[in-house]
Design a protein around this nucleic acid. Structure first.
Lengths: 389, 389
DNA sequence: TTGAAAGCGCTAACAT
DNA sequence: ATGTTAGCGCTTTCAA
C-alpha cells in the first residue's frame, strides 16, 4: 500500500481532451509568454479542462527541461550549545515562508542543526537544481561559503553581521539597537548606565560591536563615562566558555561587579543580549533589589523569554520576520535576474519593546510592587494579534 | 549574473570518460541492484571517474523516471496566537532532520504558519512527487486530511493526540505524564495536590486527558480527593479565550482560587502545561509565597521558558526530538514499502525534569532562599551537552 | 558483462 | 493559431 499509482494527469491528457497538441496546452497554461498564441476559445477550453482534471504540472519534468526548480534552500548554521536560536529561526522562517509563498517558490531545508556537511548547499544546487540559498546566521567567512559562491551568486545571508563581499546580506543594526537602549534609559533620567558585554576570549562580532556602540552612545548622550560601567572579560572572574556565554553567565558576574561598585553602581543595566539581561535580573532579585524601581534592566534581541520574566524584560527587538521576508524577496529577484548589480546589504532597524523592567531613575523603592499579571499578558496578546496581521 | 550555467556532469560524461555506456554507469552508481553486473574493473573505474568529476545525479531526471523524489513534506499546522510552538517545532524538526539525513531524504517545508491552503500537501505530492508527509500537531480531524489520505497513505502525524484512523501517529503519553508529576510530588510528601486545567469552553483533547489523568492519579496515590483542588472552567471567574489560554491565564486564576482555600489549599500545584505553571508561579511570588518551600509548582511540556524562570520550573518533558526522529523513520519505512500493515500509533513516554520549583512538603519557610544561579545554569549546560550527544 | 533504446512530462524552436 | 520535434538526464528492459 505504499504508493497509490493512479496515473497523474499530464499535458497530453489535457491535449487529448481538448483536441489539440500538448504544446498549445503548455503555452496556454504557462501564461502564453506575452503573446496570445492560442485563440480565445481554445485558451478558455484548455483552462477549463485543466481545472476539471485537476491538472498539476510535474515539477521534475519542468525542472529537467529548464534547469530551474522554483525551490529555495535554507541553510541554518548550527551554533553548538545554543538553544535559544530556536524561536529566532522560526521567526525568520515565517518571513521566508511568506515571501516564498507569495512568489510561488518552495522551501527545501538543507541544514538545521545536525552535523550537516558544509558543502550541502552546493550539493543540493547540483542535485536538485535549487535556485538559490538562504543562509541563516551562518559564518560567512567559512571557506565553504566561497566555494558556494563560485557555484552560484544566488545567495542571501540573513542575520549576520560580519563584513563579507560577494553576497547579499540582511543585517541587524546593532549600533542603532544599543543607541536605542541608551536613549530609552537616558530619557528615563538614568545617568549612570552599566553595560554587560560578552566575556568570551574571542567574542562574537555582534557583541564587540555592541560594546563599542555603547561607549559611543555614552558620549553622545553625555552620560557617566566610567570604565567600570562596562563589564567585559577584564572584570570577569574567569574566562567564560561558549556554554557559559549561551547561558548569559556574564549577566550574573556583571551584576555582582556592579553591586560591588557601591555609590558608583549604575542605576540601569544593559545586557548585550536578553539572556545576559535575564541572568542579571536574577542576580539582582536574589539580592532583593527591586527591578525596575531600584535598578532598570534592558536586554537586546527580544527573545521569547523576555515576556515570561518577572518583571517582563524590556528589550530591543530584531525585526526577524521582516528580515526573513526581505531577504527572500531579494534572493528571488536575484534568481529571476531583475537584480544583477553588486551585492546589497540591508540593515534593519531595531525597535524598543517596552515592558516592565525599566523605569524612571529613583532612589525610593516602593514597598509593595505587585504588578497585575494581566497587564503583562495583555502585552503578549496584542503582540500576537499584531503578528497575525 | 543570475545563473552560472557551467554544464553539470551527467552520466554520459562519465560514460564517455570511462569508455562505456551510460546504462552501465547508472547501474554501477546505483549500487548495482544486488547483482554485480559490471566487471570489478569497470566498476572501480566508474566510481573513480564519478568522484573525480564530482558527479551529482540530477534528481529531477531521476524523479521524472521513477515518480519518486526522496523528499518528505513537512506540514506544520498554524495554531493562531500560539507563540510557544516555536521551540517545540524546532525540536521536532531536529529529530526529523536527523532521520531524514540518515536515510538520505530531503525535507520540503509545505506549511509553517501562513495562510497555507489545507490542500497544500496533496498539491505538493502531485507537483513535486513528494514521497510522504509529516504532519506536526495538525488537526487530524480536519476534512483535508481525509482528502490527503485518499491520495497517499504515506502520512505520519507527530505530536497529536486525537484518535484518528488511517495514518501513523507519534503521540505523547499524557496519562503517564500527569502520573509522573503526581508521583514526583507524592514522593516529596505532598498529599494535597492542586491541578490547573484549561478553562476554555472547548478545551483541547490534551488538556481534557490531563485533567482526567490527574483525577485517576489522585486515587492511585491515595491523595486528598477534593474537588476544589481541580481548577477548571467551573471555578474560573470568566470564560477564557484561546489567547488567554496560550498565555496560561488559568494559572493566574488558579493560583488565586487555591489561595482562597485557606487551610484546604494545596501544598503543590500542577499546571496542565508550562505556561500555566509559570503564571501560577508569578501569582504566588507576587503574594510573597516561597516556591518551592511553601508551595511546589510543576509544569508539563518542558518548554524552554522553564529554565529561565526563578526558580527554574520542574516539569515533565516530551521527547520531541525522538518523536520527530521515530516518526520520520516510520514514514520512510512506509514509503519504501517495508511496512504495509495497518497504521501504527506509538506513544512516547514522558520524563521528569527536576529543577527548582518542587521540594519536600514543609511548613517552615526558610528566611533567605538565595539559590546559587550557577547551579541552575549548570543544568542547562549539561542538557546542552547531552543534546549534542 | 555491456549496450541500445524507449520513455518519464515538459518546453521551446521551428514548421506549418 | 497550432502542430511537430528534439531533448533535458536518468532508469530499465531487452538484446547482444
Amino acid at each position: 500500500m505504499h504508493m497509490r499509482l493512479e496515473k497523474r494527469v499530464t499535458l497530453k491528457d489535457i491535449a487529448r481532451e481538448a483536441g489539440c497538441s500538448a504544446a498549445v496546452v503548455s503555452t496556454v497554461l504557462n501564461g502564453a509568454k506575452g503573446n496570445t498564441l492560442a485563440s480565445e476559445e481554445t485558451h478558455a477550453r484548455i483552462i477549463d479542462i485543466a481545472k476539471k482534471l485537476e491538472y498539476h504540472p510535474n515539477f521534475s519534468s519542468r525542472s529537467l527541461k529548464t534547469s530551474r526548480s522554483r525551490t529555495l534552500g535554507i541553510y541554518v548554521q548550527n551554533v553548538p550549545g545554543c538553544q535559544l536560536g530556536n524561536s529566532y529561526e522560526m521567526q525568520i522562517f515565517r518571513g521566508i515562508e511568506q515571501a516564498a509563498r507569495k512568489s510561488q517558490y518552495d522551501l527545501l531545508l538543507i541544514n538545521l542543526s545536525s552535523e550537516g556537511v558544509p558543502e550541502a548547499c552546493a550539493v543540493k544546487i547540483s542535485e536538485r537544481r535549487i535556485d538559490g540559498v538562504l543562509l541563516l546566521h551562518a559564518d560567512v567567512n567559512a571557506p565553504w561559503i566561497d566555494a558556494l559562491l563560485r557555484v552560484t551568486s544566488n545567495v542571501v545571508a540573513i542575520d549576520f553581521n560580519r563584513p563579507k563581499a560577494g553576497l547579499d546580506k540582511m543585517m541587524f543594526d546593532n549600533i542603532a539597537a544599543v543607541r536605542l537602549a541608551v536613549e530609552h534609559l537616558a530619557a528615563l533620567g538614568h545617568r549612570r548606565i552599566g553595560f554587560i558585554g560578552s566575556c568570551l576570549e574571542h567574542p562574537e562580532f555582534d557583541s564587540v560591536l555592541r560594546v563599542k556602540s555603547f561607549r559611543d552612545a555614552v558620549k553622545e548622550y553625555e552620560l557617566a563615562d566610567d570604565e567600570r560601567l562596562v563589564f567585559t572579560a577584564a572584570y570577569c572572574p574567569r574566562q567564560l566558555t561558549k556554554e557559559d556565554d549561551y547561558c548569559g553567565l556574564e549577566g550574573y558576574y556583571g551584576a555582582e561587579h556592579f553591586l560591588s561598585l557601591g555609590d558608583a553602581a549604575p542605576t540601569a543595566i544593559i545586557g548585550y543580549n536578553d539572556l545576559v539581561a535575564i541572568a542579571t535580573m536574577k542576580r539582582l532579585i536574589h539580592e532583593r533589589i527591586n527591578i525596575p524601581y531600584s535598578v532598570s534592566v534592558i536586554g537586546i534581541d527580544d527573545s521569547e523569554y523576555c515576556l515570561y520574566m518577572d518583571p517582563a524584560l524590556t528589550t530591543i527587538r530584531h525585526p526577524l520576520v521582516q528580515m526573513g521576508y526581505e531577504g527572500t524577496l531579494q534572493l528571488i529577484e536575484r534568481i529571476e535576474g531583475s537584480i544583477t548589480g553588486p551585492e546589497v546589504c540591508r540593515r534593519f532597524s531595531p525597535e524598543l519593546v517596552l515592558r516592565e523592567s525599566t523605569a524612571a531613575v529613583s532612589r525610593s523603592m516602593p514597598v509593595n510592587t505587585v504588578i497585575n499579571i494581566t497587564s503583562k499578558l495583555r502585552g503578549k496578546i496584542e503582540r500576537n494579534a499584531e503578528k497575525q496581521k
